[in-house]
Amino acid sequence: MFSKSDVEKLEKDYRQAKEALPDIDHSGGYPKYPEVISKFMNAFCAPPWLKIDYDPREVKKIMSNIDNASPDNLCNVLTNANRIERFGDGQWALLLEGDFFPLVISRAYVLTNTNCSFKKGR
């Protein structure tokens, strides 16, 4: 299980990764991510976010019912978020540009019984 400090770090690192989106190098035919993005996304392959037996087929269902997602569900979608780049170049950028992380972070705050100050636009 993740803690409040884990979620705060996730939010901070997400903001830094999102700010680095313009720095992605596309000159080689596939994205070369800045270190801050790679480090953020690779954190999902380590505790407390890693789910060894994650099921990518569950991601859509979990995200469509995010308000009821369990800690295990969030680990499932975050592990998948890391792995998805292997199956399509640029997937990390798409996740960072969309509402995926704000939804996951907001739910993680709820699960740690913390008042969520996280706002999508901040």
Score class of each variant (00 low, 15 high):
Phe2Asp: 02
Ser3Gly: 07
Ser5Leu: 04
Asp6Tyr: 03
Glu8Val: 14
Glu8Phe: 10
Lys9Thr: 15
Leu10Cys: 01
Glu11Arg: 13
Glu11Lys: 05
Asp13Thr: 05
Tyr14Cys: 11
Gln16Ile: 06
Gln16Lys: 08
Ala17Met: 12
Ala17Trp: 10
Glu19Thr: 11
Glu19Lys: 15
Pro22His: 01
Ile24His: 05
Asp25Tyr: 00
Ser27Ile: 06
Ser27Phe: 13
Gly28Asp: 01
Pro31Phe: 03
Lys32Gln: 04
Pro34Met: 07
Glu35Tyr: 02
Val36Met: 05
Val36Glu: 08
Ile37His: 01
Ser38Leu: 08
Ser38Tyr: 04
Ser38His: 01
Ser38Phe: 00
Ser38Thr: 11
Asn42Gly: 06
Asn42Arg: 09
Asn42Val: 08
Phe44Asp: 02
Cys45Leu: 08
Ala46Ser: 09
Pro47Arg: 15
Pro48Trp: 08
Trp49Glu: 04
Trp49Val: 01
Leu50Ile: 13
Ile52Ser: 12
Ile52Gly: 03
Asp53His: 05
Asp53Ala: 12
Tyr54Glu: 11
Tyr54Gln: 03
Asp55Pro: 02
Asp55Phe: 01
Asp55Thr: 10
Arg57Cys: 09
Arg57Ile: 04
Glu58His: 11
Val59Trp: 08
Lys60Pro: 00
Ile62Leu: 12
Met63His: 02
Ser64Tyr: 10
Asn65Tyr: 15
Asp67Gln: 07
Ser70His: 10
Ser70Thr: 15
Ser70Cys: 11
Asp72Ser: 14
Asn73Gly: 04
Asn73Arg: 09
Cys75Val: 13
Val77Met: 07
Thr79Ala: 13
Thr79Pro: 15
Asn80Thr: 12
Asn80Gly: 13
Asn80Leu: 13
Asn80His: 15
Arg83Cys: 06
Ile84Lys: 09
Ile84Cys: 11
Ile84Met: 05
Phe87Leu: 06
Gly90Met: 05
Gly90Asp: 03
Gln91Gly: 03
Trp92Asn: 01
Leu94Glu: 13
Leu95Pro: 12
Leu96Thr: 05
Leu96Gln: 06
Glu97Ile: 10
Glu97Ala: 12
Gly98Asp: 09
Asp99Asn: 08
Asp99Phe: 03
Asp99Leu: 06
Asp99Tyr: 07
Pro102Arg: 10
Pro102Glu: 05
Val104Thr: 01
Val104Tyr: 04
Ile105Thr: 08
Ile105Tyr: 09
Ile105Pro: 14
Ser106Trp: 00
Ser106Thr: 07
Arg107Ala: 01
Arg107Asn: 07
Ala108Asp: 01
Tyr109Pro: 00
Tyr109Lys: 04
Tyr109Ser: 00
Tyr109Ile: 10
Val110Leu: 01
Thr112Asn: 14
Thr112Asp: 12
Thr112Cys: 14
Asn113Ser: 14
Thr114Val: 13
Asn115Lys: 13
Asn115Trp: 11
Asn115Cys: 08
Ser117Arg: 11
Ser117Met: 07
Ser117Asn: 08
Lys120Cys: 02
Lys120Gly: 12
Arg122Tyr: 14
Arg122Val: 14
